[in-house]
Design a protein around this nucleic acid. Structure first.
Lengths: 226, 226
DNA sequence: GTCTATATGACGATAGAC
DNA sequence: GTCTATCGTCATATAGAC
């Protein structure tokens, strides 16, 4: 009899927190990540700015929750694609192009989140370790993916998977950094930098894939170098 | 007799404008591009905030001048390196690594400027065409460079130079976007993403260089001898 | 012409009434 | 849990001293 109202109150509180974040994400999408203001959140919710402090101790706490939300959303999208579409793609090129497409599409369609996640547009704000955790998990997932591909003989064996991941993130973030700043109104399908993906993936694949027709020669020459 | 005081006054005014921009750039370097405030500029200059409006009609005008300054500084650095160091490098790989190094070094050592130039951290601010002009000129310069390398037989002839430039800027901006957001305290020499440059350049060069085993080798070596 | 003094409204944040 | 009142700071604007 005493726990039921508490649960309901906590559920109601959680719903309000979610509503704050929904409204905040909408404002960020319109004004840019640094254009968020507590007054505007309160205005759209029909309350006064001080009432927001019941749910968040500061504006940075709102940013931190948004960061965690964005990172989790991206991780979900990647993991979901990993389990469905990408599982079917057997060649190195096809898998890479599919994975890059999923990542870049999310970034282009959530420019405010990707601005908050990958750049540092808000002065004085840095994500907490908890908010950063899904991003670290995504990095580990990517490295594990490349290690798997290496074991399956699709990736060169003479480089650590961490290096492959590092260069892969540079390529991906290069596209997601050029597209919104140079041509923010282009969609995923029409974006001129998004259209660079097939070439960039082919470039990456040619460099890091295990040479097929010359596999024996490649191993022999690398062995000779020792 | 009447022009002399006017010239001196205009020179004094120009000096004040330069001082405003010096101070503003220092604040941006400390606080991030969006952390600039007119009050802080005035405080450091020992004047009152309204006095700044004598030299700049708005805060966005200060940002616009900073954008123009940063773009011009980058263009100067690239053009200078183009005329001196890079002129000596004859192979495709060596030239690319040198050019990428100059660009990335400038970006890492001027994080606030590069944030303002390549991302859109300030809500509501977009550079004017005049401020953007050096950036356009740099893009044209880069495309011209790749067209030259194509004529000298060092770059594949089956792709337009604009495509080579597009993929080149993705690589470069990928490094300059990852380095300050993921490891802002690392220098040009220790930066883990800066250290990816040799691999990324080799990847790019292997994809876009004219295959050596064809007749292009004769043309390339003749061009190198000039 | 250039500055100081002053005013306005928005911002993030806090204290306390109900 | 939401409000009003308030604080200090911000960008911006105008009036007026010199």
């Amino acid at each position: 009899m005493t726990t039921a109202p508490i649960d309901r109150r906590q559920r109601r509180r959680q719903e309000t927190i979610e509503e704050v974040l929904d409204v905040a994400a909408a404002i960020m999408a319109e004004q840019g990540a640094a254009g968020l203001s507590l007054g505007e959140i309160a205005r759209r919710m029909g309350i006064r700015p001080p009432s927001l402090y019941v749910y968040f101790p500061s504006k940075h706490a709102v940013y931190d929750a948004l960061f965690a939300r964005g990172a989790q959303s991206l991780l979900d999208v990647i993991q979901d694609a990993d389990r469905t579409d990408l599982e079917k793609l057997t060649t190195f090129d096809a898998f890479l192009l599919g994975a890059a497409g999923v990542f870049v599409r999310w970034s282009v369609e959530h420019p405010a989140y990707s601005q908050l996640l990958f750049w540092r547009p808000v002065p004085g704000f840095a994500p907490s370790p908890e908010a950063y955790r899904p991003a670290v998990e995504l990095l580990g997932l990517t490295t594990q993916r490349f290690a798997d591909l290496q074991h399956r003989g699709l990736v060169r064996r003479d480089v650590p998977p961490e290096q492959v991941t590092r260069d892969w993130t540079v390529l991906s973030s290069g596209v997601t950094s050029q597209q919104p700043s140079n041509a923010p109104d282009e969609s995923f399908d029409t974006g001129r930098f998004v259209q660079a993906l097939p070439d960039l993936v082919a470039m990456f694949a040619r460099y890091y894939s295990e040479p097929r027709s010359t596999a024996a020669r490649g191993r022999a020459s690398r062995a000779d170098q020792r």
